[in-house]
């Protein structure tokens, strides 16, 4: 596995993490229905390099949801590679296009399989980040947590609904109205993307007003910021997800992907706020 960032090199995105099968699916000899991936889009034309993270959680009630989740993640990464880099003002449109491409490909796949789109239903999260900021598009449960260089934690997106087993997936007809996009200007900020199997281990509060817990996120960010090798860091995170502590917390599949900016020098923070909406940018 190649390195996605090099400490010491100016503003280089570094990502690591992965998805592991929970006890619920493991005990039934069923595969993990979470999918995750990441990539770096090199900087050019004066734009910085972008880190791209895509995560999807196949719905338990959808028989081919693992395939749907993996398809959505693959398409998101491909779409981001094609679209980036762009000016900050165009990020919202790029995120929407990524989600739309992922959805359309999943719907095409359902026709190829001769099944309902519902059978391939999954949540969907795509995060784009650079030394200038962090942006996310999100539908379904799970959450995206950002951190500034002072250690302040922000819940960037967590659009899960009120009830535990009622999620609007990417394949739903009403997907546009449920899609959440958010952007935070944050110099050299860090980000964690996680599926619902990890959320209660990491956050407190009601499901529609989650609050990230520093006791969970601070050691995680500190660890990743100190790492140079993507493969070993990902192995450590996946070992953590498979460990007794996380297994005791939830029997669901679990995904954590962390993105940080490795810098040559300490960076100045220029936080200016968070924007979030369910509005269709089209």
């Amino acid at each position: 596995m190649k390195k996605t960032g090099v400490p010491g090199k100016k503003s280089s995105p570094f990502m690591c993490g992965g998805s592991v099968c929970g006890e619920y699916h493991g005990s039934r000899d069923e595969p993990c229905q979470d999918a995750s991936g990441w990539t770096v889009v090199p900087g050019r034309r004066g734009f910085p390099p972008y880190g791209v993270i895509a995560v999807a959680d196949g719905l338990g009630s959808a028989r081919l949801s693992g395939i749907g989740a993996a398809t959505a993640v693959t398409v998101a990464l491909e779409s981001a590679r094609s679209a980036l880099p762009v000016p900050v003002g165009s990020i919202g449109g790029v995120l929407f296009d990524i989600a739309r491409s992922a959805r359309e490909t999943v719907l095409t796949r359902s026709r190829e399989y001769g099944c309902s789109p519902r059978d391939l239903a999954s949540t969907f999260i795509c995060v784009l980040f650079s030394r200038h900021g962090i942006a996310a598009v999100h539908i379904g449960d799970g959450c995206v947590v950002a951190r500034d260089r002072h250690g302040g934690l922000f819940m960037l997106t967590s659009p899960g609904g009120e009830y535990a087993n009622e999620v609007v997936p990417l394949t739903a007809p009403e997907w546009k109205s449920e899609l959440v996009t958010a952007y935070i200007r944050q110099r050299n900020g860090s980000v964690v993307v996680m599926t619902d199997g990890c959320v209660r281990a990491a956050c407190t509060g009601p499901s529609d007003r989650l609050v990230p817990r520093p006791a969970f996120f601070d050691p995680l960010f500190s660890y990743v910021l100190s790492q140079q090798d993507e493969k070993s860091a990902s192995g450590e995170i996946m070992s953590f997800l498979r460990g007794q502590g996380m297994t005791r917390c939830s029997d669901d599949d679990k995904t954590v992907v962390v993105g940080v900016i490795h810098t040559a020098h300490g960076a100045d923070e220029i936080t200016s706020g968070v924007s979030s909406s369910r509005d269709n940018p089209e």
Binding site: A201, A215, F216, P219, L220, S239, F240, G245, C249
Partner: peptide, 17 residues
């Protein structure tokens, strides 16, 4: 036990009701 298991504090939620 890995470094994350030693350092990360995991919350244990109640069952969903």
């Amino acid at each position: 036990m890995g470094i994350l298991e030693e350092t990360v504090d995991i919350a244990y939620p109640q069952q969903p009701h």
